[in-house]
Simulated scan of single mutants.
Amino acid sequence: MSADFWAGYLSGAAGILIGNPLDLVKTRLQAGSSPSPTLDSATSPLQQSFKGHFDRAGTLVRGATAPILGYGALNAILFVSYNRTLSLLGDSPSAPSNLWRVWLAGSAGGLATFVVSAPTELIKCRAQVWKGNASSWSIARDTWKYEGIRGLYYGGGITSVRDAVGYGFYFWSYEWSKQTFSSPEDTDRQTALKVLLCGGFAGIVTWASIFPLDVVKTRVQTQLSHLPYSLRSEQRGLLHPELEGIPTPQKKRLSTLHVARQAYQSDGAGVFFRGLGICSIRAFVVNAVQWAVYEWMMRLLQQP
């Protein structure tokens, strides 16, 4: 395997480990999940929010299994595809000179991740909004059993559009900021600090550019998260507690446009930016770490 494959894999896994708790909050806000724990009146709103989303220690890593396994591979595919595409476009991955080519190569890399991104996102989002004790493995198993490969790629269309646009801006903003703020006179410490800052900036720009798409994607992939498998497989543990014992008929899945229209009609335009604040914080931290790990691993693996 090439150096950029392993550097991408390890940086992706590191980012998920750091960012999963904040990603869980972001996903629940996007999906419209409203935890309702029993709290006394003396508890502050901040504590209520925290306790509502992190009701026990295991919640901190809920839905992390699929991303750690999947996002490492996704990041590896992303960086390999980006580097190869940029080379085919006649530019150097280590020091690109044309930012438009960087955007195109990033977009191509984003599209290439579809095979991993779509099922990983679906399993992660459903695990994060589930009200029972369902694991990533049980959700993946039941999805495969009752819906086949097609079920794992539900919402794949909007996921691929999100990834193509988002990763185009991801690499573009990173290279733009690095070229703008870096200097040949920088010390190793200054270079490392600027990599962190540029990586964090790239994460914020990326999510700001695609957040409405991500909100719709999350709602598309989680629209049946309170119903499906227990009603079809008698695995009552996966059912939303409020629906236990109630013979609810299977809901019809809505299209991406229908989901977006329904979200706008019920909550207004603001719904497409719900969770952007927490997502921006997560994006800065996660992508600062990811780029630092990637750059460090590339230097380490390319040493003679």
Rank of each mutant, 00 (worst) to 15 (best):
residue 155 G to M: 04
residue 183 S to G: 13
residue 214 D to R: 13
residue 189 R to E: 09
residue 200 G to T: 10
residue 183 S to E: 09
residue 170 Y to K: 07
residue 238 L to Q: 10
residue 239 L to N: 01
residue 222 T to A: 03
residue 224 L to M: 12
residue 190 Q to N: 11
residue 219 R to A: 09
residue 132 G to S: 14
residue 184 P to N: 12
residue 137 W to P: 04
residue 227 L to M: 14
residue 222 T to F: 01
residue 160 S to W: 00
residue 213 L to K: 08
residue 215 V to M: 09
residue 198 C to N: 14
residue 222 T to G: 01
residue 171 F to T: 13
residue 172 W to R: 10
residue 141 R to S: 13
residue 187 T to Y: 08
residue 245 G to A: 01
residue 215 V to W: 05
residue 191 T to W: 00
residue 202 A to C: 07
residue 193 L to G: 06
residue 135 S to T: 14
residue 226 H to S: 14
residue 135 S to V: 05
residue 247 P to V: 08
residue 150 R to A: 13
residue 143 T to F: 03
residue 179 Q to R: 03
residue 227 L to H: 15
residue 160 S to R: 00
residue 140 A to S: 12
residue 242 E to V: 07
residue 190 Q to C: 09
residue 159 T to F: 00
residue 227 L to W: 11
residue 158 I to L: 11
residue 203 G to T: 12
residue 192 A to K: 14
residue 227 L to K: 14
residue 132 G to P: 03
residue 201 F to L: 09
residue 134 A to Q: 04
residue 173 S to I: 03
residue 163 D to Y: 11
residue 212 P to F: 03
residue 225 S to C: 14
residue 236 R to S: 10
residue 174 Y to V: 01
residue 183 S to I: 10
residue 232 R to E: 13
residue 208 A to N: 02
residue 229 Y to P: 11
residue 180 T to V: 02
residue 231 L to A: 09
residue 143 T to I: 07
residue 234 E to H: 04
residue 150 R to D: 05
residue 227 L to A: 12
residue 134 A to G: 08
residue 178 K to E: 01
residue 163 D to T: 10
residue 156 G to A: 06
residue 139 I to T: 04
residue 235 Q to S: 13
residue 164 A to E: 01
residue 139 I to P: 01
residue 235 Q to N: 15
residue 225 S to Y: 12
residue 164 A to L: 07
residue 239 L to S: 06
residue 139 I to K: 00
residue 192 A to E: 07
residue 219 R to D: 04
residue 162 R to F: 01
residue 213 L to N: 10
residue 144 W to K: 13
residue 142 D to S: 11
residue 186 D to S: 13
residue 163 D to K: 08
residue 201 F to Q: 02
residue 241 P to D: 12
residue 131 K to V: 04
residue 131 K to F: 04
residue 247 P to W: 07
residue 144 W to D: 13
residue 175 E to H: 14
residue 165 V to C: 09
residue 206 T to I: 05
residue 186 D to V: 05
residue 191 T to A: 07
residue 138 S to T: 13
residue 175 E to A: 11
residue 146 Y to A: 15
residue 195 V to G: 00
residue 148 G to P: 07
residue 201 F to K: 00
residue 146 Y to K: 14
residue 168 G to Q: 09
residue 142 D to R: 08
residue 212 P to K: 06
residue 230 S to K: 09
residue 169 F to V: 02
residue 179 Q to L: 02
residue 169 F to P: 00
residue 141 R to C: 06
residue 247 P to G: 07
residue 207 W to E: 10
residue 167 Y to I: 02
residue 176 W to S: 05
residue 223 Q to M: 11
residue 248 T to A: 15
residue 203 G to M: 10
residue 137 W to M: 11
residue 229 Y to E: 14
